[in-house]
Design a protein around this nucleic acid. Structure first.
Lengths: 200, 200
DNA sequence: CACCCTACCAAGCATTTGCTTGGTATGCTC
DNA sequence: GAGCATACCAAGCAAATGCTTGGTAGGGTG
């Protein structure tokens, strides 16, 4: 969609790097690891990129721009509160399906990377994500779709963690599609926080 | 309880190491980091331990022995299915409260460490954990406490992830106690997977 | 006092790490 | 066919890493 038809060597190297970073973590991936996987020498990477850091930088920014664009579209839509929340969950599982490496890098290394000035936008994105979910939850409560006694912050963390942690076991192309997983997760999640039930 | 009254120097160093491992990951923690935090030189650590690996080893084994002892006690108890499941969740949150570093290390580094012979028991513990949760879920379904249409594997992963990922944000001694968090999580979880509701 | 145990220091070694430098081969373009 | 851009290699450097070695200081015990 957004990229050119034939991926440039640069894009190919970024893909390879993303896979390595996702698998072993940013700090535990050496430039030699990336170069080996690409079939070149480590020094040759510096013809394409300034540094190892600039590689993750580009990987994360590209991914997040796309993801948050989708969140924004949902927020701006005229759907009802429950549909919005469900769509946000589904978009997230779709992201895990289509960009598992990027999601894994963000999950595993955002804390560490965020401590550098260069990656200050990671904290911004984190706050933005919180804003998205909290808004959706509060709209849901206001609309009567969600239990009014929910601890909004705790629920936000529950949803966020529940959704993104799936990157640890979900494998694109495996038996279960991302829509199947999303169906199940939404079912467990919504029947739990939907109004009208009480087992206590 | 289990340790001596005055913690030995060895135990103190393990505590310090666990904190460093949890904070930065095993591979990204240097022996100099640990030594600095302890106020000694890196070489001096080798008076107490064989290697950096043997430090995590001891940390993880001690923790897991305790945790799985608690799981076993729950399985062996005569409680009803729903109570057992709830107790297992609560015991896990208690572990996060009392051994946050150990939980974090296991969450972040088990995959990597497990690839070495020495840490083969990590895979065993993982399988054991799966066995515990799957048993509890199946008992719950059989007893009519949980929805019969649940995907057991997916539900297992959902619970496991939901519980342990809390180590990322939960801070012992913070405003929210671990029992409070467990209350909320159990509520969301059980009202979601309990029988008798249908919002679709 | 001789002996030994615990806890550490001081120095360094081999390897791994991110990155640099100067060069080569191939193809495109004017 | 001269010039230039792209994509890489070969070699290596400074710093960081896990770990080793030989030694010292202090306290307890016979």
């Amino acid at each position: 969609m957004s990229a050119a038809s034939t991926p440039s060597r640069r894009e190919e190297l970024l893909r390879i790097a993303a896979q390595q970073f996702a698998q072993k973590g940013f700090r535990n991936t050496t430039v030699r690891d990336i170069a080996d996987a690409a079939g070149i020498l480590s020094g040759s990477l510096y013809h394409h990129f300034d540094s190892k850091e600039s590689m993750v930088d580009e990987i994360l920014q590209t991914f997040q721009d796309e993801l948050f664009g989708q969140y924004d579209a949902i927020l701006a839509s005229g759907d009802d509160a429950r549909t919005k929340l469900e769509r946000a969950v589904r978009v997230s599982f779709e992201a895990i399906d289509q960009h598992p490496h990027e999601v894994a890098i963000f999950q595993n290394d955002a804390d560490h990377l965020g401590s550098f000035d260069r990656f200050g936008y990671l904290a911004d994105r984190n706050a933005q994500s919180r804003q998205v979910w909290v808004t959706l939850i509060e709209e849901g409560i206001a609309a009567g779709a969600l239990r009014p006694d929910l601890d909004v912050t705790l629920t936000y963390r529950f949803i966020r963690d529940t959704v993104w942690v799936a990157v640890r076991w979900y494998r694109p192309g495996g038996g279960l599609g991302h829509t199947d997983v999303a169906d199940q997760y939404v079912r467990i999640l919504l029947d739990g926080i939907s109004d009208g039930i009480n087992n206590a």
